[in-house]
Design a protein around this nucleic acid. Structure first.
Length: 485
RNA sequence: GGCCCCAUCGUCUAAUGGUUAGGACACCGCCCUUUCACGGCGGCAAUAGGGGUUCGAAUCCCCUUGGGGUCACCA
């Protein structure tokens, strides 16, 4: 342990939105920090000027807030190790880059992009690994000074000595070994004066006293560069933990091409943050028992890095849907009410008024039948307007020749009822069935069709109570007039 | 192609030398319900292959195969 105080960071590049893979990384960092009484830092890796996207940082922070992963230090939450935007730390990186040059661990290079391009193409043609040829390592101090004084564009490169072994002790993968023969003389400072990720993340992790670097597996191949940097700078290394990748159904790295990858896409589709967190937590980790339904707090208390496993995980929507259903079912009534109200506001029924009492009844009746809040509307529009059409297959199956007559009798019977309850409706229906010597099914199914337009849903009597006697009767009449078998 | 990582049902995973290889999602069937769900019960379905080590291997080792990641003045 390099520090008693666990400090981890989530260090996204602000390229527009939060990727679900990024969400998983952020979550594991968050859980690890919280489980160990540590600090969760958010650092913005904006060292690529070409990839600047307007509003991306705000968006990122908003999304993080939405899912409930609040950071302890970061933008707008300055701690003792800021600033937390790498673009505001340029002089710091420059200082350490120069220190490395001083030590002979890095050097100036003045190649043109064209020469590098040619070099790479040649190497590829010869089936060699594309690598810098260390051409400018031979420049004398005088030559370097000369070029610098002339204002020639330059970069600073890491001076990797070939023939050595570099080991990374990964918390998840164990000991991983690399040969420096395969490590390129990575550019540390670009010609625009900005650092590359490799320098910036090492410098920042050290300065920000990060104890555990928890990041995606795609970083594993460049970790030897980072290890070398720590060594050359004489710094103690943090622990590394490379997380398994999130995968497309075809097992390739989760990508935009094969579906939604932005957290906000899932939010827009109506997924609950609880479900998303729960789902993503289980992609690569489990507590060792059979529990699958988790709230964020429960994840904190059961999470451990040791139980993160190695293989990538396919991002499988069916399970997400199920978890969404479970979490929706678990929500307090008043929260679901608010969700339904905002769905209504955004629906074709936005101009209609419904009382909370009414909506609560709808929720009670439909809860076990919806996966998303919007399904209250999609699956049972009949609670918000009278049927505009009648499901054809149900009509052909349930609407018989005598249905109009029977329903007329039924509606007459309902008419006589005073403020009917569920039981009153049921009694009335049975009475008609008996007097007409018809099975109750001959009434129940056409009745359901008449009031709802469809064949499924809550119990018919529940529907009747919710919509009320008046609407029940008018819908029956409408159905008698309109349904043609 | 070089380097690196990985490998249990379709998918997410449990089993860290001894289990009829367990659970969940999805799917199918039955029950409940004169509907649809929920729920209950049951079913289908996996240790990639080959060698070792061991009394005993999903588990440890090696090879093969397969998949993936990565090889930028992007992160």
């Amino acid at each position: 342990m390099i520090s008693d105080n666990v400090r981890v960071r989530f260090a996204p590049s602000p390229t527009g939105y939060l990727h679900v893979g990024g969400l998983r990384t952020a979550l594991y960092n968050y859980l690890f920090a919280k489980a160990n009484n540590g600090t969760f830092v958010l650092r913005i890796e904006d060292t690529d000027q070409n990839r600047y996207v307007e509003g991306a940082v705000e968006n990122l922070i908003n999304t993080l807030n939405w899912v409930g992963l609040s950071y302890d230090e970061g933008p707008e939450k300055e701690g003792n190790y800021g600033p937390y935007f790498q673009s505001q730390r340029l002089d710091i990186y420059k200082k350490y880059a120069l220190e490395l040059v001083e030590k002979g661990k890095a050097y100036y290079a003045f190649d043109t992009p064209e020469r590098l391009q040619e070099l790479r193409e040649k190497q590829i043609a010869e089936k060699l690994q594309p690598k810098y040829d260390k051409a400018d390592l031979d420049l004398s101090p005088e030559e370097v000074k000369q070029k610098l004084d002339n204002g020639e564009p330059y970069v600073i490169r890491l001076n990797v000595v070939p023939g050595l072994r570099v080991t990374v002790n990964d918390k998840i993968r164990g000991l991983v070994e690399f040969s420096t023969d395969t490590v390129d003389d990575q550019i540390l400072i670009k010609s625009d004066g900005y650092p590359t990720y490799h320098l910036a993340n090492v410098v920042d992790d050290h300065l920000m006293k990060i104890t555990h670097v928890i990041r995606g597996e795609e970083w594993l191949p460049s970790t030897p560069k980072h290890v070398l940097l720590y060594d050359y700078l004489g710094w103690e290394k943090p622990e590394f933990a490379h997380l398994p990748l999130l995968l497309n159904p075809d097992k390739s790295k989760l990508s935009k091409r094969q579906g939604d990858v932005a957290v906000e896409d899932y939010k827009a589709k109506g997924y609950l943050k609880e479900a998303l967190i729960n789902f993503v937590a289980l992609l690569g980790w489990n507590a060792g028992d059979e529990k699958e339904f988790y709230q964020l707090e429960e994840l904190i208390s059961s999470f451990s890095l040791e139980r993160v496993h190695k293989a990538g995980a396919v991002f499988n929507l069916e399970k997400l849907d199920w978890l969404n259903f479970e979490h929706l079912r678990n929500k307090p009534e008043n929260e679901v009410l608010e969700m339904l109200k905002s769905e209504l506001k955004a629906s074709v029924y936005s101009d209609k008024e419904f009382t909370d009492e009414y909506l609560l009844k709808v929720i009670e009746a439909m809860r076990e039948r919806v996966n998303f809040a919007k399904d209250f509307i999609n699956n049972s529009p009949y609670f918000f307007e009278e049927p505009t059409s009648y499901d054809e297959t149900v009509v052909s199956k349930r609407w018989k020749e005598d249905s109009p007559v029977l329903l007329k009798k039924l509606s007459d019977e309902f008419e006589a009822l005073d403020n009917p309850t569920k039981e009153d409706y049921e009694t009335a229906l049975k009475k008609v069935a008996e007097s007409e010597s018809a099975g109750v099914g001959k009434l129940i199914h056409p009745l359901r069709l008449a009031v709802s337009g469809v064949g499924g849903g809550p119990g018919v009597y529940d529907i009747l109570v919710i919509i009320g006697k008046e609407k029940t009767i008018s819908r029956i009449n409408k159905a008698i007039a309109e349904i043609k078998p």
